[in-house]
Design a protein around this nucleic acid. Structure first.
Lengths: 275, 275
DNA sequence: GTAAAAATGGAATAAATATTCCAAAACGCT
DNA sequence: AGCGTTTTGGAATATTTATTCCATTTTTAC
């Protein structure tokens, strides 16, 4: 009895069943077959129009591994499995804009409609960022942060996710960084040492703690990089480099797509200069 | 000069062009070829998943007639024509891997170039989300979370920014929610009470703490909603609703645009159901 | 009605694709 | 480390599918 023949039940006859089976078995699969499961799962909508060789290449396994995988799922082979997806292949061409329209048309207030709105908001933000990005400011920000000993990242409330992600990326790239959280009303201001730099993130309504930390750092002669929403932000006068992000709000909530894109680009650039 | 070689222009390169060409030529075609044109026109969305023999049978002509028809349209044969429809099914993906490669190689690029790549990655992720979003799963997730007393949000490492943002949004909407952080190896598992629900977020490589919390909740009969990268995720079997996000990650660098869009949509939908 | 041109069907062939099989490698167990 | 078991890669084969070719039929023009 092996992992391969432990599941010789009937083959899934619907796509829903297929998904379930996939999720159920992929747990205890050996390496190559696991790759098949993952790639298939991630490209379920391409099975109908792909060949064994194409899918195998995508999963980075030999074709025979993919054949085995189909058989573990209960099919006689790839063709039988593919038939399920070819028969079910009804949707015309879900090109992005029509599908997005569908998501929105689901009636206002439904989750799908909301999702459509947020996707669109994110897309618009990214496009606006592409147009408005200030290369000089970005380059300067990279210079300042690359030269620093430790980078102090601060962002609270809605800027906190961005700060947290920056801290994560810096950590992964082995860049010394410290995430300042507002917990317990401690501002950890003593952690700022000569040679360090501050990366402050805040959006309207601006968080006082963030501004205070930036000003404090500035007063001690440390460089401050600001990631904010407009150049008239209170952070502007306390910063040596100011990066602005045009984020589109939908309702009361901001998508953060553009902010994160800019943040990662900044972090990776700093990481590669240092590395 | 015959009807067959009267139109040896370049083959249509887009589906739009294809439709136009079809309409333009079908007028003056002999009987069998006319049948081909009619059947193709009526089944344009099945070209990608059909064989010559199948389409020919549908049009009630021999395969050779259909081959001729493809050639009249300007293609070298059926396969070339079919390729148009197979590729068109997932536009944007062809050059996706090239972009990914650029991003990996681009460590030497300028910060602005990096920013451009991340913007593009975010944009593609959002488009993919628009195409692949599972409306049923989303609706179910909203139901489960709306009915809960307290929503426990957990996401660590790179999923932490998403969890943090969800916690922020829930808080703003006055939805009782608790953000579980892994700090101090405390898992706060005792905080799970009957009537609560868990919203777990994790991406490969999956964080054990997150999975453990989800399993624990499930074992106690609490509903679990998963936000993850593929349905083969280890979270899948511990979840009552599973939302997947097509976000490609480059080592430590994941754009999160699509993930955040989905997360906010979920949170806002839950908030509005609760009133 | 006849001859030339066009269109057609089906059999033959070529190409692509799926599938099997087995030797070699990796793994797990004592 | 040594042995039996599981997993793997790739070459060999089988099958399906696309494509060409040409003899035959149909159409057209006079």
């Amino acid at each position: 009895m092996t992992a391969l023949d432990s599941d010789d039940l009937a083959a899934p006859a619907t796509i829903e069943e297929f998904r379930e089976r996939l999720a159920a078995i992929s747990e205890g699969l050996p390496r190559r077959l696991r790759q098949c499961a993952d790639h298939i799962a991630a490209n379920i909508d391409r099975i109908a129009v792909s060949t064994v060789a194409e899918l195998a290449a995508g999963a980075d396994v030999p074709p025979s591994a993919l054949m085995r995988f189909c058989q573990i799922l209960g099919y006689s082979g790839f063709s039988e499995m593919q038939k399920l997806f070819r028969d079910a292949y009804s949707p015309g061409f879900p090109d992005y804009s029509t599908r997005l329209q569908n998501l929105k048309d689901g009636g206002t207030g439904t989750p799908s409609a909301l999702l459509g709105e947020f996707i669109e908001a994110g897309r618009l933000s990214l496009e606006a960022l592409a147009k408005s990005a200030d290369e000089a400011a970005l380059a300067q920000a990279v210079d300042l942060l690359s030269a620093a000993d430790t980078i102090h990242v601060i962002g609270l409330r809605r800027a906190f996710p961005v700060a947290a992600y920056l801290a994560y990326v810096f950590d992964k790239m082995a860049v010394p960084a410290m995430l300042h959280e507002g917990t317990g009303k401690l501002d950890h201001r003593h952690a700022l040492r000569p040679g360090d730099a501050v990366l402050a993130i805040t959006f309207a309504p601006y968080s006082e703690e963030t501004i205070a930390l930036a000003q404090d750092a500035r007063a001690r002669g440390l460089p401050v990089v600001a990631l904010t929403d407009r150049i008239t932000s209170p952070l502007a006068r306390a910063s040596d480099a100011i990066l602005t992000v045009p984020e589109v709000d939908f309702g009361a909530f901001r998508s953060l797509s553009a902010t994160l894109a800019l943040a990662i680009a900044l972090a990776v650039a700093v990481g590669s200069v240092r590395g």
